[in-house]
């Protein structure tokens, strides 16, 4: 019995210590004298690795999800003679929910897992230690550029996802199923609000970007430097980040649209 409480206690302490470490890591990575000459090229490289290389999966998924939304939406709306509302239905689903959420999930799987594995391997091959011994802070050199790249690229990817998704909905709705093109766009235009829909979606994706990137970097940095450790850390990144995205999505939606 005492053993049980000991285990629970140890787990709680470990998780609190983990959160504390992640916070401390965040502060020391982000806060410090900016060195644009050194950091800029690193950041650009990470934007490419984290952002540009994720574009294919984001654009293809966005297109298919938009097309499916168009198809599903049409079959429901047409029963009520409301197929003119297909535009706003597709746009609002994407901008408010699917854009940020699905991008967050895909980003966790594509870029998050890669970040964790990369940093874990850098740790296992002593590259992080050797940076430290060369008087270069690995948090500033390795963690910070990846963090900023994730934070900036994911909202952009989410917008791309939504834009391509809307186009996919339009292709299916107007091009295939015959919804009037003018109605599709004009009803969408009048129904979508700049602040309520677009801005809230962007805010969501910024929050998800922060959480997913941070989880990925933290898990990599704290990975046990063995093959089993890195594999566990990578899995844990995808699972934790996905759950965090879904959980936070509910909270954010409740705050933004609940009242």
């Amino acid at each position: 019995m005492i053993q049980f409480f000991e285990n629970v206690g140890r787990r709680v302490l470990d998780s609190v210590a983990g959160i504390g470490f992640a916070l401390a890591m965040f502060v020391s990575a982000i806060i410090g004298k900016p060195q644009p000459r050194k950091s800029w090229p690193l950041f650009i490289k990470q934007m490419y690795v984290v952002g540009v290389l994720s574009m294919v999966i984001i654009i293809v998924s966005g297109l298919f999800i938009g097309m499916v939304l168009g198809l599903q939406g049409y079959t429901i709306l047409v029963d009520y003679g409301a197929e003119q509302s297909l535009g706003p239905m597709v746009a609002l689903s994407l901008l408010r929910e699917l854009g940020p959420v699905v991008t967050g999930l895909l980003f966790a799987g594509r870029a998050g897992s890669a970040l964790t594995a990369e940093i874990g391997l850098m740790k296992a091959t002593e590259q992080l230690s050797s940076l430290e011994m060369m008087a270069v802070d690995p948090l500033r050199r390795v963690i910070a550029p990846r963090f900023w790249a994730g934070l900036i690229s994911m909202p952009l990817l989410a917008l791309m996802f939504s834009a391509v998704g809307i186009y996919g909905g339009y292709l299916v709705g107007s091009g295939w199923l015959g919804v009037d093109e003018g109605a599709f766009w004009s009803v969408m235009q009048s129904a979508v609000d700049w602040q309520d829909d677009l801005l809230n979606g962007v805010i969501k994706s910024i929050v998800f970007a922060f959480v997913v990137t941070w989880i990925a970097l933290y898990k990599g940095y704290r990975a046990v430097p063995t093959s089993a450790g890195i594999s566990a850390a990578t899995t844990s990144t995808v699972v934790t980040a996905s759950l965090a995205v879904l959980g936070l999505d509910f909270i954010l939606t409740a705050i933004m649209f609940g009242g």
Partner: peptide
């Protein structure tokens, strides 16, 4: 410490080259 580390260096067992 970082100032002092500029005056010392370490050759890691794996080499630890940046890949």
């Amino acid at each position: 410490l970082y100032e002092l580390r500029k005056r010392m260096s370490m050759l890691f067992q794996s080499g630890a080259l940046f890949t």
